[in-house]
Design a protein around this nucleic acid. Structure first.
Length: 1072
RNA sequence: GGGCCCGCAGCUCAGCCAGGUCAGAGCGCGGGGCUGAUAACCCCGAGGUCCCGGGUUCAAAUCCCGGCGGGCCCA
């Protein structure tokens, strides 16, 4: 067994069988509430890497809170309604039968269509549930909240009713984003901007009459306008100019005709685009142009324009508007009140109709004249051609710009005046902004910068959709008097209904459409407004609808209002914790806040962790077209869910976009194996020795604890502190990283490396028992800390190694550990850090000197500032570096001072003798230095003359004595004596022989404790060494007999070895 | 045009908020070693104008200003 899919499946089956969820609930039944609210994934596909990351973060937090004793709400959620599913059903399920929206009502029937949508959603809930379970996510999968449940729908209805009561629900004609394929309005947050190419044309509107304007214009004057949507020209009703800007009148030849063009002074460069040459003949302010009447360019093609022109004197005039920009275009802006927000507002001010000759499906109506029946974007070409023929097309080009598209079907949207229902977000905006400050955002800028910016710019929220699969708008309207009733629940509906349709109530269409109410005002029949709600209302009400509110009051009190412990006027109520990707800034974070403020006057969440996107290694979006999509299930199948979990949690801070890397996944899996090996090491030896942690508690063995034992005890407790702190701040990545470091660096690469020799001691040696006790203690803490991150492996280790008879079945049922302060020894941790650095430096010296680690060396000196700090750790160094003796000190005193001549001083002073003096000093450097140090001078005789050298003639360096090497490390310097004497060499030979016998044992796959007989024959030196260390060799290789002679016939394995150019033959026979 | 995030080794990132140890880790690459928990591990080496330019300061990857580049969101 090893960490991976197989192990995980087995563990997951146990969780199911033993009903872990129920036990977890039972344990925390009386704990404080922690209302985790699952942002409902959309039930239309399978999970992708981002969804997996999202759920893993949630699961880590929940598992942590559970271990801390909280009563965590573990309800998963599913977003089941809306256009995305309708589109999928249209395109995948019923593609043969549906070509356009009309077919749904006329050919399929709304009931069947809705049924298919429901089936589709439920099927995907099932698929995705299995995938989440496979990730080890601990949630109440059998009792999710689904936006399609009646009770849930009632939650949304309740909100609409509250909005109505507060005057925040309104019906209005406005310009909305309209998807001509889905034939419905879209909210701003359902519009995606993508770059596309569109025509860019300059068009002449000939001036007809200037009598109402101050400006005096010649007969052939024309307004020059610019547009990228030629299809809106059949709806042109006005031209806007900026009142304070200056406009010029330019005589120019366009298409071979002379015109006097009107454009803004700042934008007159366009004249050189539309005309070969021009001459400015007059100037006006925008204000002076106001009132000019013109003929729209499509005068002949669109009779409706002529009709409007004649019956309404306000139509086709120039108006002043502050929003006219001098950034692009001509400064004369084509205004179509039926197709643009600003156009619409201007039209409303000056009395123009919101004329819109475009039908729901994006084709021109009868009012579109010769373009009737053409799809708007297809009409562009024909319109341009018509303009060209008439000589009114001044210039034609194309432009690349960002344009809105339907978030689901990717069709370019159009702006269109329609009657829709709105939530008046603008009226509660200030309240929403206040709440942003009271919520805890992780990272901070997620709320206070990014989200604030979005809310500040929010417009009223268009919530009506002209579709089928969604929460029906709970608005009934009297056919007689127009009275409006908003229904807040099924009970209220039953109460008010004249007659309910047959069958079990299903609040979806078409059942609900058949409910007719009696008008309380006039007694007339009231029918439901046929729209459904924007799906973002669905998820926006999750914090109470998922609790069954308003139907079920108790849950609401308990979770949402915290049984009175939360003052919803002062602090946010509702969910204690939510976490979603940054795309939800304008999505769920927003819709929840809006709905919460409208319904309860509170923000329905308290802490938000905003996470990033999963991108590929190059930082590009994962997309099918790029072929760089990574399926989380592939990772799970290959390396297991724990690998995926640990990887996503440690790879980067959650709020940053993740650049996915298979390499790092493999790396994480390796770390998991290291953990596994550490556990197996512990298990293997402690079981071999029948160690029972209950029999040998740490306390009893305290006096036998070695420095490394105390160090690990300190480290594990420090780790508890660090991980707890990180989890409390929801910085899950810090926890995951700290654990990773501990497992690989501290536990495996240092502690176990150090205690390996000790586990070969005699069975009852307390120093050995101490190792086991420490490892059990550490694992006991470690598995709890690991449980939120890698629950499967943590569980396995717990059950297999740690769990006693009376202990709970699962690590999830244990309490989160508290740091045991008495074990924490920061000085020791610091000291060990220095020791590790020193060891590293010493090992590197060995390598430079070409002395294998296996060969023992005599002495190591560690020079550090406060050697006392390291007292007691000499032995650790001795074992790791393999030296007989370790000394600590502030200074290595065996350094030898060596004098080196300074020719610049000696030369001038001793002249002819200088050469010989210098040579003498070079040759007798040590002696010279010693004398100068001791007596201040050094005397020598050259050519019979006495020469006196003092400090100034030489430079004194410290040189290492023969055989010593040194290296610096962080915090000090190590000195290693690298010469081997005969005794050491014989020991080294013995080690070499041991090592080879061990390799042969391994090859024979012998049992750890199995005894053998050994024969060694060959090089004299080696045999001598073995003879000298006979007992040790025999013990280490578990030899009953060790014979220094030719291996006899019938050995199980015989091999000739070459050890540093010396030959040796080794034979092994298994003992019985 | 506005808001936010990011920009450090071939790759993925840490350090930046609370300036001051040589600018760090892992992976990858080249070389060497260790090994009865090891499909592990250890050591060494190569590899960086910390995006650019100003400023503040005794001292800037870190703080401030201005650019450039990438991403997300909005207009």
């Amino acid at each position: 067994m090893e960490p991976g899919p197989e192990l995980e499946r087995e563990i997951q089956e146990r969780w199911e069988e033993e009903n872990l969820l129920e036990k977890v609930r039972e344990k925390n039944r009386d704990g404080p509430v922690f209302y985790f609210l699952d942002g409902p994934p959309y039930a239309s596909g399978s999970i992708h890497l981002g969804t997996a990351w999202n759920k893993v973060i949630k699961d880590a937090v929940n598992r942590y809170k559970l271990m801390r004793g909280y009563r965590v709400r573990l309800q998963p959620g599913w977003d089941c309604h809306g256009l995305p599913i309708e589109v999928k059903v249209e395109q995948e399920v019923l593609s043969d039968e549906i070509e356009c929206k009309k077919d749904i009502e006329e050919k399929i029937g709304v009931d069947r269509f809705v049924e298919k949508c429901k089936e589709f959603a439920l099927k995907h809930v099932e698929i995705m549930t299995e995938q989440f379970k496979r990730l080890g996510v601990l949630m109440d999968w059998d009792n999710p909240y689904m936006t399609l449940d009646n009770e849930y729908i009632e939650g949304a209805w309740y909100t609409l009713k509250r909005a109505h009561e507060r005057g925040l629900l309104t019906r209005d004609v406005r310009i909305v984003n309209w998807c001509p394929r889905c034939e419905t309005a879209l909210a701003d947050h359902e519009v995606e901007y993508k770059e596309i190419e569109d025509p860019s044309i300059f068009v002449l509107f000939p001036v007809e009459d200037d009598s109402e304007a101050e400006a005096d214009l010649p007969d052939n004057a024309a307004l020059l306008i610019w547009t990228t949507t030629p299809w809106t020209l059949p709806a042109n009703l006005a031209v806007a100019v900026h009142p304070e800007e200056e406009y010029v009148l330019a005589r120019a030849e366009v298409n071979g005709e002379e015109w006097h063009l009107i454009v803004a002074d700042k934008l007159k460069v366009v004249l050189s685009t539309v005309a070969d040459s021009y001459e400015i003949v007059d100037k006006f302010s925008g204000e002076e142009l106001e009132g000019v009447r013109y003929r729209p360019a499509l005068w002949d093609e669109v009779p409706k324009l002529r009709e409007l022109h004649e019956e309404n004197d306000r139509v086709h005039r120039v108006y002043a508007a502050e929003w006219v920009t001098m950034e692009e275009g001509t400064g004369c802006v084509h205004v179509a009140p039926g197709h643009g927000e600003e156009d619409f507002e201007l039209g409303r001010e000056v009395g123009l109709p919101a004329h819109c000759p475009v039908a729901d499906d994006g084709t021109f109506t009868e009012d579109g004249g010769k373009y009737e029946g053409l799809y708007v974007r297809d009409a562009n070409e024909e319109i341009i051609e018509d303009l060209r023929k008439k000589g009114l097309l001044a210039h034609e080009d194309t432009v690349k710009h960002r344009y809105g598209h339907c978030w689901r079907c990717k069709t370019p949207i159009i702006y269109r005046a329609t009657e829709q229902w709105f939530l008046k977000v603008t009226e509660v905006k200030d309240e929403m902004l206040d709440w942003i400050e009271k919520v805890e955002w992780i990272p901070e800028w997620a709320g206070h910068s990014r989200f604030r910016d979005w809310v500040e710019n929010a417009r009223d929220w268009c919530i009506s959709r002209q579709r089928y699969w969604g929460i029906p708008l709970p608005v009934w309207e009297c056919e007689e008097c127009g009275h409006i009733e908003v229904v807040g629940s099924l009970d209220e509906l039953k109460e008010k209904a004249e007659k309910l349709p047959e069958g079990e109530p299903d609040l979806h269409r078409p059942w609900v459409d058949k409910v007719i109410l009696e008008c309380p005002e006039c007694g007339g029949e009231m029918r439901r407004v046929p729209d459904v709600l924007d799906v973002w209302v669905d998820s926006g009400v999750a914090a109470w609808a998922s609790l069954g509110y308003p139907k079920r009051r108790k849950e609401f009190e308990e979770w949402f209002l915290k049984e009175g412990s939360c003052d919803p006027d002062e602090e946010a109520a509702g969910a204690d914790f939510i976490t979603e990707g940054h795309d939800q800034t304008r999505g769920w974070f927003y819709s929840q806040l809006g709905c919460g403020v409208i319904t309860f006057g509170t923000c329905p969440y308290r802490t938000v962790l905003m996470h990033g996107f999963t991108l590929d290694e190059e930082g590009r979006k994962m997309s099918k077209s790029l072929g760089n999509v990574v399926d989380p299930m592939d990772i799970v199948d290959k390396y297991g869910a724990d690998t995926l979990r640990w990887y996503v949690l440690r790879s980067n801070a959650p709020w940053r976009d993740m650049h996915f890397s298979w390499k790092d996944v493999r790396d994480t899996h390796r770390a998991l194996n290291v953990l596994w090996n550490a556990y197996r090491f512990t298990k293997m030896y402690s079981e071999l020795d029948e160690f029972d942690p209950e029999e040998h508690p740490l306390e009893e063995l305290e006096e036998h604890l070695q420095p490394e034992d105390r160090w690990l005890l300190s480290r594990i407790n420090t780790l508890v502190r660090e991980v707890t702190d990180a989890m409390e701040r929801y910085h899950v990545h810090e926890a995951a990283r700290a654990l990773y470091e501990f497992v690989t660096e501290d536990l495996s690469r240092w502690y176990i490396r150090l205690v390996r020799e000790r586990v070969w001691l005699e069975r009852d040696d307390p120093r050995k028992l101490a190792v086991y006790a420490v490892l059990y203690y550490a694992f006991d803490r470690l598995v709890r800390l690991l449980n939120p991150i890698i629950p499967h492996v943590a569980e396995h280790i717990y059950r297999d190694l740690l769990r006693g008879e009376d202990d709970p079945e699962s690590v999830q049922l244990l309490d989160w550990p508290e740091p045991e302060e008495r074990w924490i020894d920061e000085d020791l941790e610091e000291a060990m850090k220095t020791v590790r650095d020193a060891a590293e430096a010493a090992l590197s010296l060995r390598q430079k000197a070409g002395v294998k680690t296996r060969w023992p060396l005599r002495r190591l000196f560690v020079e550090v500032e406060e050697p006392d700090r390291l007292e007691g750790l000499e032995d650790v160094l001795a074992r790791i570096v393999n030296v007989k003796e370790v000394e600590l000190g502030e200074e290595f005193e065996e350094k030898v001072p060596v004098a080196r001549p300074r020719p610049d001083k000696i030369g001038p002073e001793f002249r002819d003798l200088a050469g010989r003096v210098i040579r003498h000093v070079e040759e007798h450097g040590e002696e010279v230095a010693r004398e100068i140090r001791e007596s201040g001078e050094y005397r020598l005789e050259v050519d019979g003359e006495e020469v006196v050298l003092t400090e100034e003639h030489v430079e004194i360096e410290e040189r290492l004595p023969e055989g010593w090497e040194s290296a610096e490390f962080e915090g000090g310097r190590v000195y290693l004596y690298t010469e081997m004497d005969e005794e050491l060499r014989r020991e080294a030979w013995a080690r070499e022989v041991i090592r080879r016998i061990q390799e042969m044992r391994k090859e024979l796959d012998l049992d750890l404790e199995e005894r053998i007989e050994v024969w060694v024959e060959g090089d004299e030196e080696i045999l001598k060494a073995v003879r000298e260390h006979l007992d040790e060799v025999a013990r280490e290789v578990r030899a009953r007999e060790l014979n220094l002679e030719e291996p006899p016939e019938g050995c199980d394995l015989e091999r000739e070895w070459e050890v540093e150019d010396r030959e040796v033959v080794i034979g092994i026979r298994r003992g019985s």
